[in-house]
Every structure is written in C-alpha cells, then in structure tokens.
Nucleic acid binder design. Structure first.
Length: 774
DNA sequence: GTAGGGTTAG
C-alpha cells in the first residue's frame, strides 16, 4: 500500500504545518491509505478568534510543559482544557508530558482524540510505544507515517536496540536516508546495551569525532562488563568530559569495590551532582560499608528518590529492617521501588504481615510489587495465599513478569497443582517466556513434581541454551520417577553438550541408580566423580550410595562406606540405613540407626514413625508403645498424613479415615467394592504394619481408610478414564497401601502415579516401577 | 521563546 505523497512545500521542515489526518489512532486498526490527507484538504478548519493571539497559546504551552516537568499532570490538564484555542503543539506537549510522567493510557487517549497529528506527534508516540514495551505498535505507526524524519528513524532504531534486536537496529541504521550524530550514537548504544562491547569498540574506532555522549556510552559498556581498565582508558582519552563522564567513571570504581579511587575521583570531579553522590553511596553499600554509605548519604546536599532507595536497599540487604523502616517513613518522595524494596525486605525477614500491610497501603503497584508479595507468601509457607494473590494480580490486569511466573510455578510444583500449572504454562507461552532458562526451568520442574515427566520432557526439549539447572532438573525428574536409564541417558547427553556437571547433577545421577537398583553403575559414577569432574563427595552423595547398597541388601557394604566417610554422618545418612534395615528386616541395625537419628534430630517425627513401623512389622508391640510414649515425652507429634488429588482445578485433601469430604459415602462404597475385587485378585492386607496395637478388624478398617487410598479412589471416580490418576502424599506411602494400589491399578486398568516426599510411584498392571523398594 | 531521537545511579 502506498501513501499519498505530500506536497513538497509542506515537507515537515515546519512540522506544525504538516497535517496528518487520523482516521483512528489505534495503529493496528488504522486504514493506512486514510492516514494522510493532503494539506489542501483542510479537514478541520482552524477557528480564529481575534482575542487569542499566537503568543498567548505559546505562553500556555510553556506553562503546560512546566507543570508536566514538575509532575503535575492535573494542573497541566486544567490549563489545557481552559485554552480557547489549542494548536498541535499544545496536544504534543500534553502527550509528551503524560509519557514522561508514566501515564501511557492518558497519552494514548489524547493521541486518539486529537484532530490533527503531525510528524512530531507521531515521533512522540513512537517513543511512547517503545517506552511502554510495545515495539510492534511503534513499528506499525512508523510504517504508516507518510513522512519520516531523522528523529523518527532514530526512535525506531533505539526501539530495536532496547528490545535486544541488534541486527534489526543495524538494518534500520543502514536504511536511514539521513544520519546525524544521534543515529551514530544509537547504533553504538545498540551494541553496548546488548553486551556486544567488541563490536561497539570497532565501530567507535572506525570513525573520528564522536560527541561526549558516545564516549560516555562506550565507557558505560565497559562499566557493565566490569572492565575497569578499558573504561579508564576511554576516560583518559576523552577530549571533553561532562558530568556523566565523571559519574560513570566513579561508578566503575565504586562497583568494583575500589572505593579509595572512587573517592579520589569524587574529590577531583568538577561537578558533583545527585548522580555522583548516589554512586558513592551505592558503592559503599555494595562493599558492605554501611556506615560510610550512611555518612555520605547524610552529607548529600540534594537527594532524590533513587538515593533514598539505595540507602534503604542497603539496610534491607543487611537485614536491618528497623533502620530501613525509619528511612522509609522519613523520605519525602516515595516511588513504587521504595515500597517494593520494603515489601521484599519484610517478606524475606519473615514478617509477611508487615509486608502485606505495606502492599495494601501502596498507592501504585507494579509487577515487581505483586511478585514480591507472592514470593513472600510462598517463602513463608502460605501457598494458598500466594496463589490467591496471583489470581488477584491477574484480575488487577497486571502484566505477569518472569519472576511472578517462576514463583507461582514453583508453588504449583510444591502443592502439585497440576491443572493450574498447565494454565500458567499457557500464559508463559503467550508471554514468550517458555524458551528461556529462567521460566523454562521452573516450568520443567513444575511438570516433574506434578507427576508428568513426559510433559516435563517436552518443555525441556524446547528450552534454548539449557543451563546446568535445566539438565539437573530433568535428570532428577527422571530419577525420582524411577526412570533411571532415562536419567543416565540425559546425563550422557549433558556431557556431550559440554555442560559441566555439578554436585547437584551427581546427586541426581546417584539417586537415579539408587531408585532403579543399578548398583554397579552407581559405584562407577561415585568413583568417577572426583576424577572426571573434580567434585568432592558430600553427605548427599554418600547418602545416595548408602541407600543404593542398602536397598540391594548389602548392609555391610553400606555400613563400611559410612565408616569411611571423611565427616560425621548426618540424620539423612542414618535415615538411609534405617530404611534399608526396615526393608530387609534387620531390626538391630535399624534400632542403632534410629538412636543416632534421635540424638541428632530429636524433633524428627518421621524417624519415630519409621522405627515404630520396624517394631510393628516384627510384632514388638511393647516397643511400639514405648516409642509412642517417648514421642509424647519429647513433645514430638507425629505429622498427620494426608493425601490430595486434583480434580477439575480443585484440590481434594484427605486424611486417615476422613469422612469430611462431600462425597464421602460414595468414596467408601467404591472402596468396599474395590476391596472385594482386590481380595479376589489375591490381596491380603498387611495388618501387621499398623502402628497401633489394636484388634485385627479395627486394623483392617484403618488400613482401608489411609489417606492415599481415599485419594486414589476419588481420583478413579472423577478423572476421566484414559488419563493417569495423580495422587500426592505428604509422608511416605504406607506399605500396605502400596500393595493395595498395585492391585487397584490392575483391576481398574488405570495408570496411578503417586508422589511421596521421596519419589514417584508409577502403578500399572499390578506392578510399581519402584520395584517395591522406596 | 513552547512539543520528538542518543550517555550515568536503585
């Protein structure tokens, strides 16, 4: 589509004479052929009132500019509305003012309403779109403009640069019909902002006579890369220096921790403005010299919101919320960052109530505020409130940033909210975050921990530039799901991809061997760890190995390895031995391990339960009772076991013998029916495992109503056949339930996936892929 | 005399 050509006489040398008629101001809907009407078609006659002179209008325009610069949009608007006659410049001033005050919506509204747009209007709006992260709209407007000048080209060049599209920026630079020094600086900045400092340097050296802004720009590139010496060379070579040059160099020294040199330059600098002072304050804070920072801060002749925020952030980082709070209360000019810093600080120090109070009181929230409060609830263990706030955030129309996505995905992983996780996945795709490591890894972990290893793998495949965390997550995912061979296969691919395995990788590899019973492979990898990757075995690696040997029945080897450890075994290591003793019925060794665990972690109720089970399984009811009174004496309470299953976006939680569920009767009836069919299938309930010394019939009843059985039954009833039933339990699955679920999976012909704190069990056709060792 | 594009701090 072609634009009507402008009459040459109006070619924008005097922009306010160029009349661009707007059909509709929303770029995507605009019919481009109607964008421009030739200057002879005066679509809007200018009303001429004798009394309002041009100079009156100019005076008003200047006043509007002043109001806008002072951040007083309301005053500017009142004046604007009171003007009997407005020019395009008046509109442009208002729009530009709104944009620099962050009011994109109002700017866009006025842009839509204004009768005659000119070249400057479009240039203002292009940069407005870019500032508002809508490069597409900027480009559309740019393409539709019948006339562009060097400012339009520079604006779109900068838009590409800011969005990381360096090649596009370069293309624009070469296409420009006219270049000025701002264009040259634009392409230089495109390299610098995107970390391509060598290309920036080559460009810089390829041409003489750069303005001071470009010298500063190149210097800031070295600052970002922490390449202090080269920054200093540029600084020394500069023919002219302005305040920015001094400030950038001082920041360089401050950020690298060379405060003496920063201080020297600070003294020498001919201009000390608020940037200079703030650079010193931040420098001391980054060096942990909080007192020096505060001294400079108090000396500062003028402070702005950034200076206050830097000082507050310093106190927050050093966990001094009292001083942070004092400053926050005292500061004259808070912005959204000030509030966000305080909210994050309170949330991280565990004071979620204060964090929430601030969050509720703040005048303006951005995506960082929401992410901070959501992460705060999540870190403080209140997943439910975190998710509620997430939903609230969406309702509020806030743009979801990567941090909020990552945080909520990890909550979904924790509580196994699979359906919600999938919905969030959809939004991640829309936002274009799925290929990046940061959100991609969280997505991957969510699928692993929600029990869908296949979907996890699909996400994994799509992550570009997988990092060590991506590989570790998929390896550990396969390991926990009991697919040891897949885990090891990925470990080999990881090495081929030249990603250096770390300690976490090796925990994944060894636990893959352990969950799959690959004793020799495990021993091989354990021995190769330090030789091949320089990784020194830590207690987690030893625990995996003891687990591996123990499960295989090699209890002596396990104990020998434990004795050979260069450090004292911790509770988890003893726990592996206790687990192995239970599986192989070695009560003596089990008791020894349990004793050690009680000594190390008297509060660890899980271990009391394991030992109780060990006694119970050998009929030692007296010891079981002793165990229970010991738990009472030490004040340790058995963590109540519960299981949950997600059905149509709702999470249904069950505890032992639960009858609180609305469909309780149906569930129990279904369990009765299953029980009959299981018995016909050869199932005998393992009543000896019940903790309590109760009558046989009572025991049977208790077993039947374990939380995992209730959740499995409900899942089968409600989840459409053909789909796996995914059930989650907060404690390790009980042995009898494990046997029962194997039968159930066979009888109903379903895949049942059960997550316990240790691993995933995939029940299918009467077997579990854990091989009955867990 | 008024409006638009490039460099520094959290």
């Amino acid at each position: 589509m072609r634009f009507k050509q402008l009459h040459t006489s109006s070619l924008c040398l005097l922009p306010n004479r160029t009349r661009i008629h707007a059909q509709s101001a929303t770029p995507p809907r605009r019919n481009t052929s109607d964008f421009f009407k030739s200057p002879t078609t005066k679509s809007l006659p200018q009303p001429r009132t004798k009394k309002v002179t041009d100079s009156d209008i100019v005076k008003c325009n200047i006043a509007i500019t002043t109001h806008m610069r002072n951040g007083q949009c309301d005053l500017a608007l009142r004046l604007f509305n009171s003007m009997p006659r407005k020019t395009t410049v008046s509109y442009n001033t208002m729009i530009s003012g709104y944009l620099s005050n962050g009011s994109f919506k109002l700017a866009h509204q006025l842009f839509d309403e204004m009768p005659l747009k000119d070249l400057v209007t479009c240039n203002i709006m292009i940069s407005g779109y870019i500032k508002n992260k809508n490069l597409l709209a900027a480009r559309q407007l740019f393409d539709e403009m019948p006339v562009k000048d060097v400012v339009s080209w520079n604006a779109i060049l900068s838009g590409y640069a800011q969005n990381g599209l360096v090649d596009e920026a370069r293309r624009v630079f070469h296409l420009m019909p006219e270049k000025n020094e701002i264009s040259w600086n634009g392409i230089l900045a495109a390299y610098v902002q995107n970390g391509r400092i060598e290309e920036a340097r080559r460009l810089f050296e390829s041409k003489g006579r750069w303005p001071v802004v470009s010298w500063n720009c190149l210097m800031s590139g070295y600052l970002k890369k922490k390449r202090l010496e080269e920054a200093r060379q540029i600084f020394d070579r500069m023919p002219v220096r302005d305040a920015v040059s001094w400030n950038t160099m001082i920041t360089c020294y401050a950020q690298i921790g060379r405060m003496e040199e920063a201080r020297k330059l600070f003294e020498k600098s001919p201009i000390r403005d608020v940037f200079t002072w703030t650079a010193m304050v931040s420098g001391y804070i980054q060096n942990g010299q909080l007192h020096d920072a505060r001294r400079i801060f108090d000396e500062m002749p003028e402070k702005n919101v950034i200076s206050w925020n830097a000082m507050i952030a310093g106190y927050v980082q050093s966990k001094n919320m009292n001083l942070a709070g004092e400053l926050f209360e005292a500061m004259p000019c808070r912005n959204v960052s000030s509030w966000n810093t305080m909210i994050t600080g309170y949330a991280q120090s565990g004071d979620i109530a204060r964090a929430r109070n601030l969050f509720d009181r703040m005048p303006h929230r951005d995506c960082i505020s929401w992410a901070a409060i959501i992460a705060g609830y999540a870190q403080n263990g209140d997943s439910e409130e975190a998710l509620r706030m997430f939903i609230e955030m969406k309702r509020d129309g806030e743009r979801l940033n990567r941090s909020a996505f990552t945080c909520v995905l990890s909550i979904c992983a924790d509580i196994a909210a699979f359906e919600l996780g999938k919905q969030i996945h959809g939004r991640v795709v829309k936002a274009g975050y799925e290929f990046g490591c940061y959100v991609g890894n969280a997505l991957l972990a969510m699928y692993c921990r929600c029990g869908s290893i296949d979907e996890a793998y699909n996400v994994f495949k799509r992550i570009e530039d997988k990092d060590v965390v991506s590989w570790n997550t998929i390896i550990i995912g396969y390991a926990r799901h009991g697919f040891g061979e897949e885990a090891l296969k990925h470990f080999e691919s990881m090495k081929r991809a030249c990603i250096q395995p770390d300690e976490v990788t090796m925990v994944g590899v060894l636990s893959a061997c352990s969950h799959t019973g690959l004793v020799e492979r495990g021993r091989y990898y354990f021995n190769s760890m330090s030789q091949d990757y320089g990784i020194v075995a830590n207690s987690k690696h030893y625990t995996c190995m003891i687990d591996l040997l123990g499960r295989a029945g090699r209890l002596d080897d396990a104990q020998n390895l434990m004795r050979s450890m260069p450090f004292e075994p911790d509770a988890a290591t003893w726990g592996a031995l206790l687990g192995a003793s239970r599986i192989h019925g070695n009560t003596l060794l089990g008791e020894k391990a349990a004793e050690m665990i009680f000594a190390l972690e008297p509060w660890n109720s899980g271990m009391y339960v394991l030992l109780s089970n060990l006694y119970a399984s050998s009929g030692r009811w007296v010891d079981v009772r002793k165990m229970r009174s010991k738990m009472r004496d030490t004040g340790v309470n058995k963590v109540p076991g519960y299981s949950w299953v997600e059905v149509q976006n709702n999470i249904h939680t069950f505890s032992v013998g639960d009858s609180n569920h609305a469909e309780s009767d149906g569930i129990y009836a279904f369990l009765e029916e299953l029980d009959l069919r299981m018995k016909r299938d050869g199932y005998v309930s393992a009543t000896k495992l019940v903790l309590h010394d109760v009558e046989e019939e009572e025991k049977q009843h208790m077993l039947k109503c374990h939380s995992e059985k209730l959740a499995v039954a409900y899942g089968i009833m409600k989840i459409p056949s053909g789909r796996p039933v995914r059930v989650f339990k907060n404690l390790r699955v009980c042995e009898d339930c494990h046997t029962a679920i194997k039968h159930i999976a066979k009888i109903v012909g379903r895949l049942i996936i059960l997550r316990d704190p240790n691993r995933f069990h995939h029940f299918k056709d009467g077997v579990c892929n854990c091989g009955d060792y867990w």
